[in-house]
Nucleic acid binder design. Structure first.
Lengths: 245, 245
DNA sequence: ACCTGAACACCGTTCAAGT
DNA sequence: ACCTGAACACCGTTCAAGT
């Protein structure tokens, strides 16, 4: 069974379009144009034909640089994740720095509705995804989470943030997929669904960011209290994968 | 500004196709045919044209019963959620019953890749979604979670489960969107990404269900320890949207 | 070798025309 | 009133032909 090629490895294609009339094509300019289109027109607007048109060429030309639409989407997603800040304030405690990384990730995705949706359906294992992953593992280690738990926890964290970003971008996206739900919840009868009726205000209360902040607390306290492996006494080994706490 | 019509309210359309040759059309048979197609062919396969073809008619005909593709997808999702069991074993403690509901929800979505993806991008506020919501609120109340926290917690729970179902269905779906990631993680260099390298096995370990079970523990302990409002002594009143806080 | 227009097999949606 | 074929404006992808 053939394994998918790594879309992030360079491929030997040279553009022959030079001069002032047309800028030379490359993976970079294609991905940049696509990301721009994604931000302006949403996920649906980022079609191969539209990207090609923005670059003054035909859709078929793009196939010299990209396998298919899925690969382009994967590249675009990782490119967008370049905006996630993982540096962090040097002196700050781990919790503040972890929050910073996650908030940055959330903001990058929530910037445009298309991006969050794309992140939900695509698993990008590009350089920027890996950079974020590494940063999160490092911070969890610093927090005293054992490696086995941390490995699963990052998955959980990214899953939750991505989903939250989708909700948030829908919320501010206007096109009322949320207004409809709010309307239904507001008009639910107290006989059939007494608890929904009682909680109708709370169910839709809070900004996306308030919910995000609360969710982060839930996650962190949950993760800190649900180690996959029971805590062990510190070892003397090199890399300090010490259990802590 | 116009608010979206509730797609779950009945609409007055009568089919004129009777007799043995063609079964009469209705919202129900259209949704059933679409769900069947979704399960067999995935989300992409469930096009209006394909659904129409399965019902021996043209795509235009469906527009008498359904506003557009989005509405059909919303109806299909809620219909699928009819399979979620909220009854529960009467005598069991709340945690076991909560787990049962969530596991059932997870299984229904993970059954077919298209369904989980659909749930991720669609907010269905149909009768079955409401039924699940009501059950979860009830169980969280029983667990001692205050109403304000419970209202936000169900959102978090459903978000996480849906995301987990997407991952799970991708995992078993074969078409290697995960094999690629696993490959990248396995070959990541220990210089640039030391923690990813060290955790390369743990990052992809565990079955979808094992991760689900662990995630549930994380959630519950996190939610139980992160009340939005400080814990109060039990009251004697019936139930009321009391001011709180 | 890169680039391209045209073609193929699809979409969702609309609409005038049928019964 | 329901149903329909045809048309419109799109898709992703392939391929033979250009330079």
């Amino acid at each position: 069974m053939a394994v998918a090629r790594n879309p992030f490895s360079p491929r030997p294609v040279k553009s022959r379009r030079g001069g002032p009339a047309k800028a030379p094509l490359s993976r970079e300019v294609i991905v940049a144009a696509a990301l721009d289109l994604l931000r302006r027109e949403g996920l649906e607007g980022m079609s191969l034909r539209q990207v090609a048109a923005a670059l003054d060429t035909g859709a078929a030309t793009l196939y010299a640089y990209v396998d298919d639409l899925l690969e382009l989407q994967t590249l675009v997603l990782d490119r967008a994740l370049a905006g996630v800040e993982t540096g962090g304030r040097p002196g700050a405690p781990w919790k503040a720095r972890l929050r910073d990384v996650l908030v940055s990730y959330f903001h990058v995705l929530a910037q445009s509705p298309g991006l969050a949706t794309l992140a939900m359906r695509t698993v990008a294992a590009g350089p920027n995804t890996l950079r974020v992953l590494e940063a999160l593992l490092s911070l969890l280690e610093e927090a005293g989470v054992d490696p086995g738990t941390a490995a699963w926890a990052v998955d959980l964290l990214l899953l939750w943030i991505t989903g939250s970003a989708v909700e948030q971008s829908l919320r501010q996206g206007g096109r009322d997929p949320l207004g409809f739900v709010a309307q239904v919840i507001a008009t639910v009868g107290s006989e059939r669904f007494p608890r929904i009726h009682a909680a109708r205000d709370e169910l839709i209360s809070g900004s996306g960011f308030e919910r995000f902040a609360w969710g982060l607390d839930v996650f962190l306290s949950g993760i800190l209290q649900s180690p996959r492996t029971p805590a062990r006494p510190p070892r003397a080994g090199r890399r300090g994968a010490r259990p802590a706490r």
